[in-house]
Amino acid sequence: MIKNETVRSALSLAVRANLPVLLWGAPGTGKTSAVMALAEQLEMPIEVVIGSIREPSDFSGLPVIRDDGTWFAPPRWAERLSVSGSGLLFLDELTTAPPAVQAAMLRVVLERAVGDLVLPEGVRVVAAANPPGLAADGWELSAPLANRLVHLDWQIEAAGVAEGFAHGFAVADAASVAAPTSGQIARAKAQIGAFLRIRPELVLAVPESPEGAGRSWPSPRSWEMAARGLAAGVANASDEATIAALVIGAVGEAAGFEALSWLRTLDLPDPESVLNDPHAPLPDRPDHLHALLGAVVAHVHADASESAWERAWDVIARVAKTTPDVAATSARTLASQRPAGANLPTAMLVLAPILRTAGLMP
């Protein structure tokens, strides 16, 4: 069982990484209190929207006739968040929302769109739900909505409840949590992508039962969320349990445990050391080479210097001597990121046949 401290840390990371997150737990276990405390720590305004008392138009907007056409007017809570520029949208009692309301929530969770209003980038989405069997007039979560959320199981412990009575039910120090950088996200995506190359059947696996489809399961969208969760954990030097909670919360237990097990065996060299040392040892396994070159390209993109871009071609040329198909994938990405004024390095001559095959050279 995941400890509640881990879940609270994962919640803070998810919010900082702009991942829509759903807390599952029995009624009366402090989910709402924790989310309110999180908003207070982050000094964000919070809007609480309860699914059981809402209509589809509360998310898709009410049609209003104007001179230039029809405007789908957003509700007041969306307007307040828009004016604030940032905040927490807390969708409570999600499993009491009927299917029509859940369908209307889809654009809100994924695109932050409410009617014809697009919420600012600074708005984060957190939801809470009781298992349908414990909810008043509960519904299973629809598969499309479930696949847009990172699912965390809210736990209660006697010691934590006693501590909360004495000092308040606060989340882990959310104010000190850092958002992952674009480079860290790119590196995590490269690692997840390398894993999926050897386990392509896990790219998409929709559960057959409504109960399973209403929780986390693997899809291209949820794998991207898993990568962002992984990047957030790395950015904050989080422990393994917290990172696991985010990865499993995005893609489910079976796929998540397998990905985490593979990630533990990577033990890749630092991309910068590989760029600086032309004789640095490289992995033997093709999947590990994919992950390493992905990390190198992500580092070069974040660095954005001509020197790093040119040196990366030397690394790709080394890989091309043994595994040209692995080199071709990264060469395509690296070529598209050429900084203005960067010279074409001599290493590209070695790669000419590969680049022609990839359509990158005439």
Score class of each variant (00 low, 15 high):
A178I: 01
L334T: 03
I198K: 11
L11D: 08
A342E: 10
D67K: 10
R124T: 01
A340F: 08
G85C: 13
A129V: 06
P45A: 10
P362V: 05
A280V: 03
V161M: 12
M1I: 07
L293M: 09
A241N: 14
S12P: 00
R66W: 11
S238N: 02
R199V: 08
V315F: 02
L260P: 05
I46Y: 00
P27A: 04
A14V: 02
L19N: 05
L293I: 00
L149R: 10
H301V: 11
A127H: 06
L134V: 03
L22H: 03
P210W: 04
Q41Y: 08
E47I: 04
V109T: 01
R8K: 15
S12K: 00
G138H: 01
T181M: 02
R197W: 08
G133Q: 09
R187S: 15
A308T: 04
S86T: 01
I50E: 11
A127G: 12
G133F: 02
F165C: 06
L62I: 15
R16C: 00
L266M: 07
S33V: 10
G229H: 03
Q184F: 02
A237R: 14
I2S: 13
V161T: 04
L149W: 12
S336Y: 01
A166E: 12
G85T: 06
I243C: 01
G69K: 11
L11F: 08
P99K: 11
E43K: 11
S261Q: 14
M36C: 10
T6P: 00
A103M: 01
L196N: 08
A244T: 14
A143T: 07
P180E: 00
L110Q: 13
A347V: 01
L282A: 14
P286L: 09
L230E: 01
